[in-house]
Amino acid sequence: MGLLENFSSGLFIIQTVIFLILLFILHRLAWKPIMNAVNEREITIVDSLNQAKLARQEVENLAAENENIIRAAKVERDTILKEARDIKDRIVGEAKDLAKVEGDKMIASARQSIQSEKTAAMAEIKNQIGALSVNIAESILKQKLDNSEAQNTLVNDYLTKNLN
């Protein structure tokens, strides 16, 4: 068994030496490129995380800006609607005032026309009454003056009234 023990302890030493040599070779040849790749990967991940954080902040800023724009648009819309209502009210008020003025003019014109027609009708009635009165008086005088004594009395009365 001594030989087997020597062989296994020698094998252990050889394996350890080979492992150390392999580690040294790996350290010299592969360790730096592997570590560089890992470092580059870590830098890429950190950059990606920073870019994601910046993108999230930008999205939040855009959302806040969009909300401000929407709020400003609503305020502007309300202002425009208020101005439109004011303009409508002013136009309606002006139209009412104009209609009232035109109505007043029409009423005044109608009153003047009615007054003119009333005056003309009254003049016509007076003329007709005058003509009718003259006709009635003529008829009465004809009846009374049919006899000559009544004519003489009427002439004498008239002369005495007008001469005195």
Rank of each mutant, 00 (worst) to 15 (best):
Q143C: 01
A137P: 01
E138S: 15
S133C: 06
A131W: 05
R90E: 11
A110D: 07
Q128P: 06
S116K: 08
I136G: 01
Q115W: 15
T119Y: 05
M122A: 13
D146Y: 07
A108W: 01
R111I: 12
S116T: 08
V101W: 07
K118M: 15
V134T: 06
I114W: 02
A95P: 03
S109Y: 10
V101F: 10
A137Q: 03
K96L: 07
I114C: 02
A110K: 14
A95M: 06
Q143K: 08
N127V: 02
K105H: 09
S133E: 12
I125Y: 04
G130A: 03
A137N: 03
K144T: 04
L141S: 06
K105M: 10
I114E: 07
S109T: 12
M122Y: 06
Q128V: 11
I114K: 04
D89R: 10
K126P: 02
S109F: 14
Q115M: 05
I140G: 00
V134E: 09
M106L: 15
K144W: 00
M106Q: 13
L141G: 04
L98P: 01
K118S: 13
G103W: 01
A120K: 13
S113M: 08
V134S: 14
E124L: 02
I91G: 11
S139Y: 00
Q112T: 11
K142R: 07
K100H: 07
K100L: 12
R90L: 11
E124R: 12
A123F: 14
Q115G: 05
L141C: 04
K118N: 12
E117N: 15
I136R: 11
A120Q: 02
D97W: 13
A110V: 07
